[in-house]
């Protein structure tokens, strides 16, 4: 837990406090009008047929004799369902500790959900296995505990199988799905997962590592091992090799972004460290 964390929570709370449609009373200011505590406006009875909330004064003073009712903002609740892809690649990194970033963000979301009065659920998928499951609830799991548990988790497994299976059980309404992943996936795999998650409101958070994207070009021998597949490769590193790696990496990012765009999404990119200003802007820009 760092001192900058409260700011992070603020940014997340701000994002979640934006109006989200929902019918059940909850902590968020809903877009729907109806019975509530905060006055919103008045509307003709014909448009909002709720005679219990007749606005007598407005109706009597209306020059055309129309009957008005008061409308109040309804408060909705929602479940912030966090999906964390903790396959073995999450533990890899050069410039960033992506596991710590994920733990920070998850605890931040949990804090934000608690302060917003929302339900918070967390599912961690390690490849084909579900590593951690926190069912929707309120304040039962302190953000500190979530941070600690995610920090000590050993990322393992390969692929997105567990997360893809989870999506079937997710409700379609009153939910905001936040998907935290390093997105070390092929475009097709990502497309599959997004297809399964949509049309739920989805907030993809992309943990990027500039070190892995642009390896340095010094001459040397590198013995590389894929932590997910166990595949190994020895490469002779040169400037040309580094340039080729940066190029394929950029191409792959562009391909992933096209997949996100096809699903009407724009991922929030966390590059190496969290910049609260950029995160806030990204959260604001992200389509719901």
């Amino acid at each position: 837990m760092t001192t900058a964390q409260p700011h992070l929570f603020e940014a997340l709370v701000w994002r979640l406090a934006q109006r989200i449609s929902g019918a059940r009373p909850g902590g968020h200011r809903g877009l729907a009008r109806g019975a509530g505590e905060i006055f919103a406006d008045v509307a003709p009875l014909a448009r909002h047929p709720d005679p219990r909330r007749l606005d007598l004064r407005r109706s009597l003073t209306d020059p055309f004799g129309e009957v008005f009712v008061r409308r109040f903002e309804t408060r909705t609740d929602l479940t912030l369902h966090l999906l964390l892809d903790a396959s073995a690649s999450l533990a890899t990194g050069a410039q960033a500790d992506r596991q710590e970033l994920a733990a920070l963000l998850a605890s931040g979301f949990a804090q934000a959900a608690r302060r917003g009065g929302d339900l918070f659920a967390l599912d961690v998928g390690c490849g084909g296995r579900k590593a951690l499951e926190i069912p929707p609830g309120r304040s039962l799991n302190a953000p500190e505990e979530i941070f600690a548990r995610l920090r000590s988790l050993a990322p393992q497994g390969e692929g997105l199988e567990a997360l893809a299976r989870l999506t079937e059980a997710l409700p379609h309404e009153r939910i905001l799905v936040a998907l935290i992943s390093d997105f070390e996936h092929a475009p097709e795999e990502l497309d599959e997962l997004l297809s399964a998650l949509r049309p739920r409101p989805l907030l993809p958070i992309w943990l990027r590592d500039s070190g892995l994207e642009n390896p340095p070009g010094g001459f040397g021998l590198a013995d590389l091992r894929d932590p997910e597949t166990g595949r190994r490769r020895v490469v002779l590193t040169t400037k040309t090799w580094a340039a080729a790696q940066s190029r394929t990496s950029a191409e792959r990012r562009a391909a992933l972004k096209r997949v996100f765009e096809r699903h009407g999404l724009r991922p929030v990119e966390i590059l190496d460290g969290i910049s609260i200003g950029e995160l806030s802007a990204a959260l604001e820009e992200a389509p719901p």
Binding site: S89, A91, D182, E228
Partner: peptide
Amino acid sequence: SAPVPRLDLRTGG
């Protein structure tokens, strides 16, 4: 050995 994810996607060299 250095762990590097998705070697199949990091081709070249």
